[in-house]
Each structure stands twice: as structure tokens, then as C-alpha cells.
């Protein structure tokens, strides 16, 4: 018999983010599929009451909580202590949690602490009456594997955007507090704040329906023998403003900055897509001035519809990596695209 613990941390306002509700959807469907499972909710954060109320009707037998100011920040030592306590109080054998940066940081360590194992970046969870299996990607989204595990507790961190979110009515519910005392050693770290790019540099928008990728071609010499970096910047920023698209980049383009060449001022390594960058999820992606090499396109694994604009008819996008390749000057095309979007 499995005891499923849905484990989540609250947001600053005490509620659960979409990623947590997606993991909850996964946990409730496990609860339905597995025979004789118990289902418990464990919440951690400064104040967990709003979150518990938000998901009161999810069918959990119990709501456990670790709360207090010590558990507001995303800090390994306090998060690990709280999560381990919740796991032990629930006597969990399966722990389903969202793969947020906060939980990716601490839960693999918690699994070790409570004698279990963790699987991170899980994209699919399946269950029969007596067996659970998970799927995840290997070699930077090159191949997908499905496995089962004998170790318990088994922590399953569900990647955001891979599962439908749980929906249900809010209600009042009692949260059983799990007492946790933090030793001073757990307070050696203080979260002092967040660094957010300036408004027009806030170009990474995980929820956008479109990804725009800018490649190194934007900074290269064009037909007239000149570079046109300021115009490239303007075209890209205008497009982002008009479409609310998220901005991705190739490694070559962001690396140029480190080499002292002219680059687009709003780009950083955080925008990089690919082998050593991100693998975002968007329904559509438009690549511009990029060659579409494999180390870049592995980051497009979860982009469904793909189009590319490149001067090179033999670029990798032409070889089955995009649905449509426009062999054209991206400056001319994007100028017109922006004009049409603004009209």
C-alpha cells in the first residue's frame, strides 16, 4: 500500500502556484489509480492556510503544514528540514512535488536524508493498481526513458507544464501543524532579495505562447558589409513588445558579450536555449538569424510548431528541425512583421 504525499511550498501570498497545482493533479490521479492508497497533503511556507483552503477539496485524508517566518524564504537548510519532517509525519512512500527551483534545490537532499530516492524533471507519471512508473529525459532532451523504482520514499518532482493542473473548489480545512525547530546552523544563510532584469530586459516569459529565438546572425556583417546591431535590438524589442513573446538566444550570441563584441544589451546566459541552456515549453517558436545546430535545437524539444528565418538554405532548420524555413533576410522580414503587428 502506498502513502502518497503531495508536497508543496506556498508563494509569497500563501497560495499555490500553477506548477504546484499540476503536481497536485498528478498526485490525485495516482491516488485514483493505485489500489488502497492513502493521500496526504504537506505544505510548507510562512502561512499555509490559504494554500490548504485553495485545495481543500482535493480528496486528501489529512493536511499537514510546517509554517512560520523561518519557512518563508527558499533556503536549503530550512526547506530540507521542513520537507523531511512532513515526509516523516505522513509516513510517505511516494512524494509528488512540483519541480520548482525551490524544490529542485532541496528535495534530492531530503530524499537522501529520509532514506529514499528522488527522480527530478519527471514529465510523465503512470500508475496501474500496484505499480508506478515515471518518464524523464536524458542527454539534454535527446532520449526519453521510463522506469519504476523499488526504493521508498520515492520523490517524484514533476516538471512544470507537463501535467494538467488540478481544479476544484476552495473550502475551509484544518491543517495539522508539524512542529519543526530550526537550529542556528540552519540559519547560516539569509535570502536577501531578488535580482530582476530592468523592465525592457525582462524578456524571459515562461507562460508566453511564442518563443522568439535570436541567433548570432543579428550581429554579423550584412549584405552592405556593415553590422546593424542597434536596428537588430530595436526589431527584437518591438517584436517582443507587440507579441509578449519570450526571448531565447543561441550560445554564440550570448557568448559574444564575454568576448567583448557588440551584442544585444538585453541578452544574458539566462536567455540561452539548448544543450547548456534552457529547454522552455511554448506552443510556437520562431527562430531568427540562427543556424539551428543540434546543441541549440535540443533546447527546442518542447516547442511544438517551429518556424525559422535564415539566409542559409542549408542551415540545420532545413533538415527536418523546423516545420517551415524562410530563406530570407530577417531584418527585412521582421521590420514588416512588426509593421503588420502594430497596424
Amino acid at each position: 500500500m502506498e502513502t502518497i504525499l503531495f508536497l508543496a511550498h506556498t508563494e509569497a501570498d500563501g497560495t499555490l502556484a500553477p506548477a504546484a497545482l499540476e503536481a497536485l493533479g498528478t498526485a490525485t490521479s495516482l491516488n485514483t489509480s493505485l489500489a488502497n492508497a492513502r493521500f496526504i497533503v504537506g505544505l510548507l511556507g510562512e502561512n499555509v492556510t490559504p494554500a490548504a483552503q485553495q485545495i481543500a477539496s482535493c480528496g486528501a485524508a489529512k493536511f499537514l503544514g510546517v509554517s512560520g517566518a523561518d519557512f518563508a524564504p527558499a533556503r536549503y537548510a530550512s526547506d530540507a528540514t521542513a520537507a523531511a519532517a512532513l515526509c516523516q509525519a505522513a509516513e510517505a512512500t511516494l512524494v509528488v512535488a512540483p519541480a520548482t527551483s525551490r524544490f529542485n534545490r532541496c528535495l534530492p537532499g531530503v530524499a537522501q536524508r529520509v532514506g529514499g530516492r528522488a527522480d527530478t524533471h519527471v514529465t510523465q507519471v503512470r500508475a496501474t493498481a500496484d505499480q508506478v512508473s515515471v518518464s524523464r529525459w536524458y542527454y539534454r532532451q535527446r532520449m526519453e526513458g521510463t522506469h519504476t523504482r523499488t526504493q521508498r520514499p520515492w520523490f517524484i518532482l514533476v516538471d512544470p507544464g507537463t501535467h494538467p493542473a488540478w481544479t476544484g473548489a476552495a473550502a475551509t480545512v484544518a491543517v495539522e501543524p508539524v512542529a519543526v525547530t530550526l537550529e542556528d546552523a540552519a540559519k547560516r544563510t539569509t535570502v536577501t532579495g531578488f535580482r530582476t532584469p530592468a523592465a525592457d530586459a525582462q524578456t524571459i516569459r515562461p507562460d508566453a505562447s511564442l518563443l522568439l529565438v535570436a541567433g548570432a546572425g543579428w550581429t554579423k556583417k550584412q549584405a552592405d558589409g556593415q553590422t546593424h546591431v542597434p536596428e537588430a535590438e530595436q526589431l527584437i524589442l518591438d517584436f517582443l513588445r507587440l507579441t509578449r513573446a519570450s526571448l531565447g538566444s543561441t550560445k554564440s550570441l550570448v557568448d559574444l558579450g564575454g568576448e567583448g563584441q557588440a551584442v544585444l544589451s538585453f541578452l544574458s546566459h539566462l536567455n540561452q536555449i539548448g544543450q547548456t541552456g534552457a529547454t522552455p515549453r511554448h506552443p510556437k517558436g520562431l527562430s531568427t538569424c540562427c543556424h539551428g545546430e543540434e546543441p541549440h535545437t535540443v533546447g527546442w524539444r518542447f516547442i511544438n510548431e517551429r518556424r525559422a528565418i535564415s539566409l542559409d538554405p542549408n542551415c540545420s532548420w532545413a533538415r527536418g528541425k523546423a516545420d517551415v524555413l524562410y530563406v530570407a533576410d530577417a531584418f527585412a522580414v521582421m521590420r514588416k512583421v512588426n509593421e503588420l503587428l502594430a497596424a
Partner: peptide
Amino acid sequence: RIEGGRHQVSR
């Protein structure tokens, strides 16, 4: 690195 292209600062 945290979500949405932001950084968390810790001491």
C-alpha cells in the same frame, strides 16, 4: 537562477 529569468540573492 530562479523562475522567470530572475536571480535569488543569498548571503
